[in-house]
Design a protein around this nucleic acid. Structure first.
Length: 417
DNA sequence: TCTGGGGTCCTAGGACCC
DNA sequence: TCTGGGGTCCTAGGACCC
């Protein structure tokens, strides 16, 4: 088999670039990419973290994930723009459509990243690096935002290459370039080495990707288990997964969680928040055509203590009330009376059919299911706010929170590339 | 002082059974 | 009463990604 050629295409400061282009197109004279700016949530509703920063903002040492408050302290003139996920979905799709003109084999990896298999394009494009420049410029000219393209022989090397100098660049990390381009980088830069792993590696004197690559893999496995083998292979550029066309993604779980604008101190309000979370979870579950056998509730206190509780159910369910009832029981078992900052509901362990045969002590949700079906179709036609439960009126809790159900879902990445 | 939300995968410990 | 392993299932929590 001949050598593969893989591209990784990554939008530079995606959310911020997309917002900048959107504003320019609507007559705003300011290009957000040229000034210190971030996409960030609203601190007043306790959603205040930085999601994406401009390159000028980066010069003030503003980090993704830090609080808007501290980012502002680093740069008082910082412009803060709220996220607009609908816009991002549109940009992501337009971006993918251009890529499809260059190779039929592309895989969306996240909202702003694609892999492309360029192995069999040799007849049309003489030099893959030249082709990468063409694609990069095509996207810039047609859509107005810039990308980095990494070119190599597998996904991990292509992905590492696209992370090198930004923005608007094409880089290669071919196997013979690993020592000069990848091994010199600090260990934190390696894909799948996060804070915890970096700390463990550094405590053993492993400071660069090269240090890890040369370390005895048996010793790495002793203290990092299977994850150690994964990152050791990545450090050596070893990875062989194919670029897969996005088939209907096999979803493993559906969840919805929210930081509540105020601390919840009573059961009743907590149950209402759980209902608003369950509404979207259950609707998405039904839309996917699944029934769930596991319900989980997660909780964060005002002191940032996290805990969760889950229950396996022996007849799979998809009905809002059934899921909500279990979520409330789980919450009541979990909650020790602390002020609650954040709540989450998640369903998983899917199957295609529910067993209609009721076991002893189980409720028949047939009527509720009929109501769910009717409400789903009304919301599909008239919008999510067209029907909601009266219990939310004057409660201070929003009737629906989290992801909408009509948005096209984009695939989630896994650690396996 | 402030610290989001959506996922996936892995591990450890306990229950239970043979 | 005290002593084993091995296997599966369930639950909680942690690590990582964007």
């Amino acid at each position: 088999m001949s050598q593969r050629i893989i591209f990784h295409i990554d939008v530079n400061s995606a959310y911020l670039s997309w917002e900048a282009v959107h504003r320019l197109q609507h007559g705003d004279p300011l290009d957000l990419r040229t000034v210190p700016a971030v996409i960030g949530g609203n601190p007043e509703t306790r959603h205040g973290i930085v999601l994406t920063k401009s390159i000028p903002a980066k010069k003030f040492d503003i980090q993704t994930g830090e609080s808007v408050f501290s980012a502002k302290a680093k740069c008082p003139k910082l412009i803060i723009v709220p996220p607009n996920y609908g816009l991002y979905m549109q940009c992501s799709k337009a971006f993918g459509d251009i890529l499809r003109e260059y190779s039929p084999l592309i895989e969306q990896y996240s909202i702003d990243e694609y892999f492309m298999d360029f192995s069999n394009m040799g007849r049309i494009f003489k030099d893959p690096v030249e082709a990468a420049y063409t694609i990069k410029d095509h996207i810039k000219n047609e859509l107005g935002f810039t990308v980095n393209i990494g070119v190599s022989t597998n996904k991990i090397l292509a992905k590492m290459a696209s992370e090198l100098k930004k923005p608007d660049k094409v880089h290669t990390i071919f196997p013979d370039e690993i020592p000069t381009k990848m091994w010199v980088l600090p260990i934190e830069e390696l894909f799948m080495v996060g804070r915890a792993t970096a700390k463990k590696l550094r405590s053993r004197g492993i400071k660069t990707i090269g240090d890890l690559a040369h370390y005895d893999p048996k010793l790495i496995k002793l203290f990092l288990k299977s994850h150690g083998i994964l990152v050791w292979n990545y450090a050596n550029g070893i990875e062989g997964n194919p670029v897969r066309e996005n088939r209907r993604p096999l979803i493993k779980g559906i969840g919805n969680s929210t930081t509540i604008p105020f601390d919840v101190e009573d059961r009743k309000t907590a149950h209402l928040v759980l209902l608003s979370l369950t509404e979207t979870v259950a609707a998405r579950l039904r839309q996917a055509g699944y029934y769930a056998r596991l319900v989980s509730v997660s909780l964060r206190t005002n002191e940032f203590y996290n805990c969760s509780h889950q229950r396996k159910i022996y007849s799979a369910i998809d009905c809002t009330n059934a899921i909500h009832e279990i979520a409330c029981e789980l919450f009541d078992e979990l909650w020790k009376g602390q002020p609650v900052r954040h709540l989450g509901v998640r369903v998983s362990e899917f199957c295609q059919n529910s067993y209609k045969q009721l076991t002893l002590f189980e409720k028949d949700y047939a009527k509720e299911s009929a109501v769910d079906k009717a409400v789903d179709s009304i919301r599909a036609r008239f919008g999510n706010g067209s029907v909601f439960r009266s219990s939310f009126i004057n409660s201070g809790v929003r009737f629906s929170s989290g992801g909408t159900i009509d948005d096209e879902e984009y695939p989630m990445m896994s650690s396996l590339l």
